[in-house]
């Protein structure tokens, strides 16, 4: 997973970007539900969903190559499971249906995440009364993803620059070292964030 591909285009300006986040959320989930519920015997339905997604994608002004790149990145996960479907009676038909459905849903979600800043999604969640503890957790998580990913990168480079024998045991230990160090640093950072929240009157 590459962080630079994350909601990369969510700050573009287009008719789709300007829609309220709640509308886009409902529309995207609606499209996904339709795709999943459509019987396999109705290819016209899938074509309709595909057309809707395509129109929205063009309107969003996101470069088509970007969709391709994201889709390629996610495809192995879907293929890994879908391949199992081949080994059963009528397997190819199942495989094809599942792949069509999955890719349509993936495209919908890629479109949603790249036209809707996550902060807006959080605000919608807040409005529909998702428990505050969960919203706070999501908000802090989103904010510190990038900080922690940077930290992992720095620790990894620091280790690599002093690792001279690429043995498997060493690799495991250094991976574990990075993860435990990351956890300790995260707890320390959480303490400092708590202090910063209190300093601005958090109650």
């Amino acid at each position: 997973m590459r962080l630079d591909l994350l909601d990369h285009h969510s700050r573009l300006d287009s008719p789709i970007h300007r829609l309220p986040a709640a509308v886009k959320l409902v529309a995207a989930v609606g499209l996904v539900v339709a795709t999943v519920l459509l019987p396999a015997s109705r290819p016209a339905g899938f074509a309709l969903v595909a057309a809707a997604v395509a129109v929205a994608a063009v309107l969003s002004r996101i470069p088509p190559a970007f969709f391709g790149k994201r889709l390629l990145l996610l495809e192995p996960l879907a293929l890994g499971v879908a391949v199992l479907a081949i080994f059963q009676p009528g397997g190819w038909r199942v495989f094809a249906t599942v792949m069509v459905r999955t890719n349509l849903c993936l495209l919908t979600m890629i479109l949603l995440s790249n036209t809707t800043p996550f902060a807006d999604v959080l605000r919608v969640l807040q409005r529909v009364r998702v428990p505050p503890l969960l919203v706070t957790t999501l908000a802090l998580m989103y904010r510190y993803l990038f900080v922690l990913a940077d930290e992992v990168g720095r620790m990894g480079r620091a280790r690599a620059s002093r690792t001279f024998s690429p043995q498997r045991g060493v690799a495991w230990r250094s991976l574990a070292g990075i993860v435990s160090q990351l956890f300790i640093r995260s707890t320390e950072r959480a303490e400092r964030i708590y202090a910063a929240m209190c300093a601005r009157g958090w109650q």
């Binding site: 902060a119 989103y142 510190y144």
Partner: peptide, 20 residues
């Protein structure tokens, strides 16, 4: 008093905890 005294922390990443 927390209102009267403003604290600027050393690491801005600790203090900037909101998504926007």
């Amino acid at each position: 008093i927390r209102r009267d005294v403003g604290l600027l922390f050393q690491d801005p990443d600790d203090q900037l905890f909101c998504p926007t």
